[in-house]
Design a protein around this nucleic acid. Structure first.
Lengths: 205, 205
DNA sequence: TAAACAATCCACGAAAAGGGGGATTTCATA
DNA sequence: TATGAAATCCCCCTTTTCGTGGATTGTTTA
């Protein structure tokens, strides 16, 4: 029996998952957590076979929560389940230790198959996610830590000078980062840079 | 018996809604549509008591679909059901004829109550949506048609001159729109303008 | 019908960003 | 230990945006 923890804050979604999971006699939904702290409380008290983890949670996000869970239990088999198909989310989730990434528009069959795959110790990515990861895997989309930091400050409306003051570096350095960001994300200027950054999930709404 | 059409493309969500609705003996789920064209086919062939309409649909969006449905049946009682709490979505949905707006994080009780309220001919907005509509209702967030048009072109990386050429107006006019947009949305510059615009839903990802 | 708003256009100067270079240091890792 | 990437800093010149002010012509609508 595969024992599941569902981490999800939409009641209707929880009902649906419960229903779908109950149709398989290999799977049982043991617990449901509707936010990060409840999730951690469950994870600290019990070892689940698979954790179904949503990305958007009230007051926190699944990306950080994933790291937290892995810190407590490095063996945890986390399957991300999200509406969001942003590349950054997918990559960060996998970097943070998730064993799979599943979009919510998948059928019940795919959902069940994903859970079984992850439980068996393998990685599961749904088709659309695979496609997204293939896309521009050539044109270097990998942003450095500092670049992401600068990017978010730009999105908040700070100028090169203001960012420089905040990070204790030269405005010229910030300008270099900005130019590199524009090139890396294939933007035309700062405006489209922000649009792309948000589409990819680097900057959250 | 309140006859429902669910327009939603996440199988698990559909299952959950079916389950929740089936718990009320006043409500029955007659049909499910997973995209806009299937929805229109259903709406043209039958008159539902309430239509539960998701905003994010494959290849189209609930905003336009709402107008389409109202065009076919001006009496349709549409209840928007969405993850998205962007002000623009809420306002546009209501302008386009929806009778209610419900966020997916609401409990089954609220969902059932919303359906009954809309069916009874009243408007239903969940608490968070009411709160969002109250916020900055003072500071004029209403953008004109032209402003939204210009805003989206700015987000795509076009300069004032390029936008001017595209819209057959003077670059100075575009500049005026840009400045007004920055003031109206309370941005510091174009970068933060785009971030806010996307957060509010004026520009989609 | 007057007021309010949308959409258009303008001027001037300051500030910021963009384009195209180049360079050094540090740090991880292959 | 050499290679490469990340992070830092620099120059020159052009283009674009920003901040301040305006003004006119329509079209709703209270």
């Amino acid at each position: 029996m595969i024992r599941i923890l569902i981490v999800e804050d939409h009641p209707a979604m929880v009902e649906g998952l419960r229903k779908i999971l109950s149709e398989s006699d290999e799977i049982t939904t043991l617990d449901v957590a509707t936010n990060a702290s409840k999730c951690m409380a469950h994870v600290k008290g019990y070892t689940y076979d698979v954790i179904l983890l949503d990305i958007m949670l009230p007051g926190s996000n699944g990306l950080d929560l994933c790291s937290e869970i892995i810190k407590v239990n490095p063996e945890a088999k986390i399957l991300a389940l999200s509406t969001y198909n942003q590349r950054y989310y997918i990559e960060t989730m996998l970097q943070n230790g998730a064993k799979g990434y599943l979009l919510k528009n998948n059928s019940k069959e795919v959902i069940l198959h994903a859970i079984k795959t992850v439980h068996a110790g393998n990685t599961f990515l749904c088709e659309e996610v695979k496609r997204i990861l293939r896309q521009h895997s050539d044109h270097s989309l990998a942003l450095s830590r500092r670049e992401i930091e600068v990017l978010r400050l730009i999105a908040d409306g700070l100028t090169n000078k203001e960012i420089a003051d905040k990070l204790f570096i030269s405005p010229l350095t910030v300008d270099s980062h900005r130019k590199n960001l524009i090139i890396k994300l294939g933007a035309k200027n700062t405006a489209s840079l922000i649009k792309i950054a948000m589409s990819e999930g680097f900057v959250s709404v």
